[in-house]
Design a protein around this nucleic acid. Structure first.
Lengths: 317, 317
DNA sequence: TTGTAAGCGTTATCAA
DNA sequence: TTGATAACGCTTACAA
């Protein structure tokens, strides 16, 4: 169109305070300018970060974010998703763990041809677009750091089995141990569920052993905090008697003393990247073409005060 | 209509998998079935609880929740609100502190005749519908509990000055002190901002004094955690050397050792009540009639292990 | 109680 | 480049 026409229209828009009606645009244009964010994560800080990240990208393009907690209210996946897909007809859905791996959710999304992006999904990374970080390498690097401090008997608290990242973090830990000639002692590995409570329970049995570990690496900060709590009650000083490392970089990691050495997950960045793939249409294109699409973002090892050199003569070895 | 007609229609709806299109309903019915939730709160647990509460009520009536963090991304109120009000045209908005008291936000909402509900607003409770708890009384009760343990030199860390609850909590504290013949010592009161960091700083100066308090009551759990952290670094044992009480009942309150004695705020319930007022139309009616409307919900004092009887011969008195 | 028709405020298509 | 016109899928008011 001609520049002066454009200017005249712009002036009119501003002058009359014209505001396009979203509902009308949606109805006529068959796009809702709405993106759904599904989660079922007990960690409010994770959810909050994801929202911030996604919304930041949404605002740039006039999109809005619809939040859908999954299990928080005892709702089953279908009853949450159906309205969002078939009534609201969101333009795309961002799935955070563990929803990223929920088979029924993925199936419903595929069937309805609703574009989606999986954040930190499990193995099947080819099933739909995804954004993630290298959890394996992060765990590997942290373990190498611990080994570098002289630790050999390193305990590990695994993440929730429903989360795709859990096996990757454990494998990274195990790989680093193997590469440095330290076999992973099965007695020093415990199952956790990403919660403080589960870390607490894991540590109780982990640290009660005669030959207890000199360091514990937990697959989440909340669990690491549970470990620290048990250590404190046992009279162990951190890091002198026990080194503790976490994973996430929760705000809580800075609230304890000593502050927690951990891995920073780029949560907001991953969510923003997911929104980007949805808004740009890349996710839709990839999905329709059945082609893989993913973005990997960088993590960061955050060294604080909860890890130190192993004592001269620890209990074991 | 006749029951059999109703049944026939229902069967058809189910059989054909009919899904009313939200955009079309919105356009024709001039209601969006969308509710906005505005917040600007550094505490993810608070935000998360509020979302859970609001969404729970929304789902019952086929509504969806649009989240709008305020300052988190450096956005100014108007640029966040305008699209939500004029483009999306949400049916109502829920304002959590400190947005509940933001003059520009309130003005824009009033001008656009968008129904809203303020959660825990400041003084001007007649300005629009609101839901709240009795912060004054909660602080009063907690202070009485502390006084009952024999504490007389009680420190207080105030909440963020922009939050309406802050003066109410302080006043409740001061009232209880006065009622029990203990003057509030200005040297034992510090300004905080609801964050761990601010509680930490407040405690540093509070506890460095020769005549330090035997108990500290912080207007939020995060600040109380900051106080506990300082105490730990100073070698003070809680609650033997210092009692600490918080306010909120964050998940974090259970993660520290000893666990924090605090006030449980009914955050999810308040958000649910706000959604209720919006969905039922009560908020709209009250707003249009210029009539007051508010709901008060119950708090709860949660006694855990961070408070104990005052030592036989404390530093002061 | 049921059926019919007229919008709702856009986008998209097609002529001009 | 511009203007006119038909959907889009509902709600609502009114007629049957």
């Amino acid at each position: 169109m001609r520049p002066d026409t454009r200017a005249r229209v712009k002036a009119a828009v501003a002058g009359l305070g014209y505001r396009p009606n979203l509902s009308a645009r949606s109805l006529a244009g068959s796009r809702s300018f709405l993106i759904g964010l599904c989660f079922d994560n007990p960690n409010p800080a994770y959810v909050s970060d994801a929202q911030i990240g996604a919304i930041g990208r949404c605002r740039e393009s006039g999109y809005h974010l619809l939040v859908e907690p999954f299990d928080a209210l005892g709702a089953d996946p279908a009853s949450v998703l159906e309205p969002m897909i078939f009534n609201v007809r969101v333009d795309g859905v961002i799935l955070t763990p563990p929803v990223s791996d929920h088979p029924a959710v993925l199936a419903m999304l595929d069937a309805s041809r609703t574009p989606y992006v999986r954040v930190s999904p499990e193995r099947d990374r080819t099933h739909g677009p995804s954004v993630y970080m290298d959890d394996h390498r992060a765990a590997y690097d942290m373990t190498v750091y611990l080994l570098g401090l002289g630790h050999k008997r390193i305990g590990f608290v695994r993440g929730h089995p429903d989360h795709g990242v859990s096996p990757r973090r454990y494998d990274g830990f195990a790989a680093a141990m193997a590469d440095h000639g330290c076999a992973v002692d099965p007695d020093l590995v415990r199952q956790g569920y990403f919660t403080f409570q589960s870390g607490f329970s894991a540590a109780e049995s982990l640290l009660a052993q005669a030959a207890r570990p000199t360091a514990v690496f937990a697959a989440s900060d909340d669990m690491a905090l549970g470990v620290m709590s048990v250590a404190a009650r046992m009279g162990l000083t951190i890091p002198a008697d026990l080194s503790v490392a976490g994973f996430d970089d929760n705000p809580a990691a800075k609230v304890v003393w000593p502050q927690l050495t951990t891995v920073r997950q780029p949560i907001a960045e991953m969510a923003a990247a997911a929104a980007e793939l949805l808004i740009s249409g890349e996710a839709k294109t990839a999905l329709e073409a059945g082609q893989p699409l993913s973005r990997m973002l960088d993590f960061e090892i955050i060294l604080r005060q909860s890890c130190g050199p192993v004592k001269a003569s620890p209990s074991g070895q």
